[in-house]
């Protein structure tokens, strides 16, 4: 089958890869680019485990065909830390025990980053709705919401 040449910027680096037209961006990132941080939990856009920022928008990468990402700027969980220095969200998730099994964590971090980029001082309700597209089955969300609140506070103080 013919494969399309796709040119993107992923986590700040220019990255080219090949993918079939029917391949999801998620599978292309995982199989072709080798970035397995985004996870497939459902393949139907209902769990958010595959969340990435696609041109700064939170996107379920399982719902995007790989060729649609041509020319796009992509951020995955692997690009969240800056030269080894964790993003405040990552640090607050660690310190606040906001993960158990960790499979949903990359998606939550991306969705939370997108929220805080737009709204640096969200209410608890705003956080809960911003994260409502991400399923976590382990934590009951309590510690995740608290970690995002803490990260937001730290980022405002910076």
């Amino acid at each position: 089958m013919a494969r399309t040449h796709i040119t993107t910027v992923i986590n700040g680096d220019e990255v080219d890869f090949l993918a079939e037209d029917s391949t999801s961006l998620l599978n292309a990132l995982r199989d072709e680019v080798g970035l397995t941080g985004a996870k497939e939990g459902c393949g139907t856009g209902d769990c958010g485990a595959c969340s990435i920022l696609l041109d700064e928008r939170v996107t379920c990468s399982c719902l995007v065909f790989a060729p649609e990402a041509n020319g796009a700027n992509i951020l995955t969980v692997e690009g969240l830390a800056d030269a080894g220095e964790l993003h405040p969200l990552q640090q607050c998730f660690l310190e606040g025990a906001a993960l158990q099994c960790g499979i949903c964590t990359p998606g939550f971090l991306i969705a939370a980053k997108a929220l805080l980029d737009k709204n640096p001082d969200p209410t608890e309700t705003e956080i809960r709705y911003a994260l409502a597209g991400n399923l976590c089955r382990c934590t009951g969300y309590d510690k995740i919401v608290r970690a995002v609140q803490e990260a937001a506070m730290q980022m405002r103080e910076q």
Partner: peptide, 20 residues
């Protein structure tokens, strides 16, 4: 902080489907 935490917030942790 949990010992496996860093790998899980940076996308490095290898889950069942991540091995090639």
């Amino acid at each position: 902080i949990r010992p496996d935490g860093l790998d899980k917030v940076t996308g490095k942790a290898q889950f069942g489907a991540d091995l090639t």
